[in-house]
Nucleic acid binder design. Structure first.
Lengths: 315, 315
DNA sequence: ATATATATACTCATTTGGAGCATATCTCCT
DNA sequence: AGGAGATATGCTCCAAATGAGTATATATAT
């Protein structure tokens, strides 16, 4: 079979949308760029004038947020009919993960940086397991699991819940952000599962919904970033030119949503030769002044795609 | 900024194409499904009638190859204008990696399974480094690198070549399939770089071109699969229901393009409890009969997305 | 019988990864 | 002035994972 002719291709035309999960890490908190008062991610249609998907994305984000993009990586392409929102005009959503340092310049469209745990309160385990997990979320998921009429579906739901939320024997895996969100969606605990129906008046424990499936895309981005910081030195895209090892550690912890062992973190960073001293020290800090480091940009060339791992302990 | 209205979205309509890298492993060789006498990957337009991207892909592949798809995972979405082929009517290509067991049923469209090393001869290191690498490919890349007028570009080209092909100090990394292909493309050593111009009459060392950018997509799929077999038990999607440990090892080696240490391979497979004995033994083989195993499907549920690693040694 | 090919088991050294302890040097508060 | 609290930095210890080698068992082919 030959590729279809041009005329035939056009007949199947469909709109394509570009969506960005733009992440920063500021003062030890993970941040995500939103528009529309925190209700949506920056996005816009892919147009014939765009040179490439990436440049189209840059255009839209910089126009909507006046914030430049640094590192960019493709996340996923969605086209689910049932999740699109109200009616079914077909749109393909091509999502990207973008990393940057938080700047000022919030502009039109009510572009604002938000703490991403506003949208996923159950994902932040830096101060231990959030109380809402054992007290509210897990019980409600269990109720949902037991509500299945079929024994098979019931045990499958319980199995998935246990793996995703680290129950009976399983340990918490911070990378399963998307699986957890999908479970909450299936269990209709999250507001966007009721789209079109009753508006849930209690945002509290489950966080606020976002437009269309933007919260799912955000979950995808967080999951990808949490996985990636372990084997690629992407954190440095989020750091200022010069930083202390503790600041670096705090950024990693912010993204991972869990604490790491300080001595081991330092050991790994130094033995991997990811950073070099600037010679300067911090001042105006509370404790003992710390050495300032900068990222060794040449390692990007040297090891390039190869393995460069930062620790995020598993227990 | 609100999401654009429906009418506005339609104005930016663009065609979307689904492309599959369908992989099997047969008799210790990696196989890829092609159509048009090995000239293209199975593909077809995404249509309004398709329930989802995945189901659209299944429809096209099964229609073109009469071969059912098993495991499916999204690879990447392309829209580069310059790589599209001849003229510039805009198409978005959404590519997938699919795994299956090689079946009979080759049908219309000249659908055939091919050894993927036909297209990437330099990627098979199971019998040691292919002679063409040091003798032809690397020298030609060095010539290309030196031909840059700018010193910076020159050293950047040499650096990239060294990392990708494991030269001076760097070791061969089997995952860098795409980087290697891209270098060969940039250096115009690969036929498709001459598209529209002179047809290179010597396919030999650099393998044959494919339609449009299908060879690049194949490289993307191989790279993804080589990375994935190390931390997810996907090889089993390619195995028959029952197999010996050596057959399993040969499949891993076929995909990775390098040999693994047999005792260590067995140790890992067994201690991870990925397989269980069937009780039966092989017959009709040359050496000592081997136990037959089957994959323990419950580990997919248990550990799900968690880490399950198969070894492909690094040295 | 012997060569050859495969299966299977075991050992050893090194590296990696998680966790704890000890000490040093600041600021801030009383 | 002195102590509390916070941060920085260095070192040790142990257990698990990993890479590599060796030895033995059981089949087929000639």
């Amino acid at each position: 079979m030959k590729p279809p002719a041009k005329a035939e291709l056009r007949r199947h035309s469909i709109a394509a949308e570009l969506i960005a999960v733009l992440v920063a890490a500021t003062n030890g908190q993970p941040r995500v760029m939103t528009i529309d008062s925190g209700n949506a991610l920056p996005s816009g249609p892919f147009e014939l004038g765009h040179r490439s998907l990436q440049s189209g994305l840059r255009d839209w984000v910089e126009q909507q947020t006046r914030h430049p993009l640094g590192y960019i990586e493709q996340l996923y392409t969605f086209a689910d009919r049932d999740r699109a929102g109200d009616d079914a005009h077909r749109v393909i959503s091509i999502s990207y993960l973008a990393l940057a340092r938080e700047g000022q310049a919030e502009s039109a469209d009510k572009a604002t940086w938000r703490n991403w745990y506003d949208y996923f309160p159950w994902e932040d385990h830096r101060d231990g397991t959030p109380p809402a997990l054992p007290e509210i979320i897990v019980p409600q998921l269990n109720t949902w699991a037991k509500a299945a009429d079929n024994t098979l579906i019931r045990s499958e739901r319980q199995q998935r819940t246990a793996v995703a939320f680290g129950l009976d024997g399983h340990s918490w895996n911070e990378e399963l952000v998307l699986q957890r969100y999908e479970l909450l969606y299936e269990a209709a605990l999250v507001e966007e599962a009721h789209r079109g129906r009753v508006k849930n008046p209690t945002p509290s424990v489950f966080g606020p919904a976002m437009a269309a499936d933007h919260r799912r895309i955000l979950a995808t981005g967080i999951a990808r970033l949490r996985a990636k910081i372990k084997y690629r030195p992407v954190v440095f895209e989020l750091m200022p030119p010069t930083f202390t090892l503790l600041q670096l550690q705090r950024s990693v912890e912010a993204l991972a949503g869990r604490l790491v062992h300080k001595p081991n973190f330092r050991r790994l960073v130094e033995q991997q030769e990811l950073v070099e001293e600037t010679g300067a020290m911090t001042a105006d800090m509370r404790g003992r002044p710390a050495k300032l480091f900068r990222f060794r940009h040449d390692v990007l060339a040297e090891r390039a795609v190869a393995g460069t791992k930062l620790p995020v302990s598993r227990a």
